[in-house]
Design a protein around this nucleic acid. Structure first.
Lengths: 181, 181
DNA sequence: GGTTGCATGTAAATGGTTACATGATTGT
DNA sequence: ACAATCATGTAACCATTTACATGCAACC
């Protein structure tokens, strides 16, 4: 799934600027299953525009730089729906956090505790963001389903970390493999 | 976290060949939080060998091609432990599956059902693999913790999909946005 | 005075995946 | 027969990230 398709997906939900699209992947409804950067979004939007899959209009703002609002065209709509028909590639998950933690016995217990606390806080913050949006019955069924799954998975992750933190710290503290802080 | 560090991590658990390292990321203890390909593993192993962080020995096998078994050196050990001290980069998650599902109302309900069923089966299979390994008290504390977290998260995902599948299908079936199969 | 948020964009660098090359054996 | 598993490796290709470029407003 390339940056172009991802942008089309965001634009199907309504008009948006490149900056707003990035936010959708950073803290918005797509944040828990996809990431992107400006370096991929802006070129993608230009390409989509050239292909006639989206149209842009300039929007002046006071005390803010102008923005370019893009909308999906009928042609863009059908291109997206075609793209949704492909078999999804396997999920990609990359977690330095879990890689590091899997060698917890070689790390100072204090650092392990700190890493876990940080991550719990991160999950709780993300959960608040995802749950707070009082849009439960305004968002389309698919988006609500995906959002619910994100919440379920993040909650399980945070709960697990909280429930097993002490046990891990205890185990690595009593082991002889201790490394100097 | 680059391919070299990842390989060092696997080798800290014991001697292994490039092929076996890949399996660790494909179906082994690292599979739920990292992926790699041969194209990144073999060059990484050669580089690590040249730097003196690992040593290799050839192992002849009957009715199988020879393999090169690599072991981590003391220098490699300390290089890995240093690498574990860096702040972990944010987790990367990329799911075409969730992206597609978030537009479920534009897809034939049958296809949505099939996608979800496939994914449930995938999770259940992965869970069986992760749980079956009767190594609970043989693996080091860190690895057990990370494995437990993988199980908790995958179980939450599979349970969510099972619990909400029917609801989603019902919602998109009654909507007027139906698209021809 | 420094940082953060808003806003768009480009170019180089990075790194990894994909595909290729090779080949024996085992299972369907 | 064909696909899959074991086993190692290289090289082109690709896409994305990172860093740079620019600038104003608001907040601390």
């Amino acid at each position: 799934m390339d940056a172009k398709t991802l942008c089309l997906g965001v634009l199907l939900r309504g008009e948006a600027s490149g900056y707003e699209i990035k936010k959708a992947f950073e803290e918005g409804p797509f944040s828990h299953f996809h990431q992107t950067s400006f370096g991929s979004i802006y070129p993608a939007l230009n390409a989509l525009s050239a292909e006639g899959l989206i149209t842009g209009r300039a929007q002046a703002q006071d005390k803010r730089p102008d923005k370019k609002l893009y909308s999906i065209t009928p042609k863009g709509r059908s291109a997206l729906i075609s793209a949704l028909k492909i078999e999804p590639a396997p999920d990609v998950m990359r977690s330095d956090f879990l890689f590091i933690l899997s060698f917890a016995q070689f790390l100072p217990p204090r650092r392990v505790g700190h890493l876990i606390d940080q991550r719990i806080a991160w999950y709780r913050e993300a959960l608040e963001r995802m749950e707070s949006c009082a849009c439960t019955n305004t968002v389309p069924a698919g988006a609500a389903f995906v959002r619910g799954m994100g919440i379920a998975v993040y909650r399980a992750a945070a709960d697990y970390l909280e429930a097993h933190r002490a046990e891990l710290i205890a185990e690595i503290s009593e082991s002889a493999t201790l490394v100097a802080e």
